[in-house]
Amino acid sequence: MSNKLSEVQARMNGVHGLESVVGAMRGIAAARSREARSRLDGIRACARIVGAAIGDALLLIDDHASRETTSADAQHDTAMVIVLCAEQGFVGTYNEHVIDTALAPAAANAQSSSTEYLLLGDRGIVAATERGLNIGWSAPMVTHADEVPALADRLTHILFQRLVAGQTTRVSVIHATPNPTASVQTVEQTLLPFDYGRFSANSSAPSPTSARRNPPLINLAPKQLLSQLAEEYIFAQLCEAIMLSFAAENEARMRAMIAARTNVHDKLDALTGDYRRLRQEEITSEIVELSAGSVAAGRPSKRPRPRTVPDTPPSF
């Protein structure tokens, strides 16, 4: 009985240690999600500045030239989809939701054999392989918010390399967004072909047909300037997508840790019940043994008493 009691006690100590680990992981995930959210405003402000610059650059070229800049020689229509998954574990079904969104025909632009997937996140590779995703390139996802610009710059470089080589004509990115509910919410964003029209129609940017009193001073050819600004804007879009995905991943981890904490408490309650039951059985067994010993000590002996011989002989 004492062996079982000590075993239950050891298991309770182990579960208490696991509870501390779960609490620490939940706190780290919450801090990283909060940090990622706090950096979104800066990324979006940068995107707005670049967008305003694109609107100014559109004034330097006519409509026909801007369309020539945006249209690629697409004899072979090929699509590239960037899928942002989780780098680390304990995120529940987070990766599966993102992969399923990428495989949906609407999200994958009516996917065909020419669709190539660029996947970020080591944990998502297993789920993608199981679902038959054609992974053309993969890389680790960020584990800290400071790593987002470097990864976005790497993605932008690969994207434009393949665009110049004619290996792709359409590019989109699929990622999860922070969601206060328990479900994983995913979005798809089109990066290429680049839509210059949204900047010319923006109320904050002048129309290309309107005259400008003080046109901007440039040192580059208008088409080259516009192309570089478009690349910079796509870089900002990728930074935002990666940061949102990083925040959503940590929120999914927070939810998983909350569920794990509930399971830990349930396990502790069950072990505590087992411990009390075994302890009660041990106490009851000790009381029974003590009672049996007391009864045996107070019971008279049935063996015959030996006869005593007198010390002095009888007198006649």
Rank of each mutant, 00 (worst) to 15 (best):
A248P: 12
E249W: 00
V184G: 01
I234G: 00
E251V: 09
Q228A: 11
R213Q: 13
I234M: 03
S207Y: 04
K223E: 13
P222S: 03
N214E: 06
V184Q: 01
F199K: 01
I242T: 07
I242Q: 05
L220C: 12
Q224L: 10
Q237L: 15
Q224A: 12
A241L: 09
E251A: 05
A205R: 01
I218R: 13
V184C: 03
A230S: 15
A252C: 06
A211W: 06
P208H: 02
N214M: 05
A182T: 14
F246C: 06
L244Y: 03
P206F: 04
L229F: 01
E188S: 12
S200A: 11
S200W: 03
Q228R: 15
A241G: 04
F194L: 01
A247G: 11
Q224R: 10
P193A: 07
A248K: 03
F246M: 09
L226V: 01
N202S: 13
S203F: 12
E251D: 14
L238V: 02
N219M: 09
Q189D: 14
F199L: 02
A241S: 14
P193K: 04
Q224H: 08
K223F: 08
E188F: 02
M243P: 08
E240R: 09
S245F: 01
L217S: 11
S203C: 04
S210Y: 03
L192R: 08
A241T: 11
A248N: 07
Q237A: 13
A236L: 02
L191Y: 05
R213T: 09
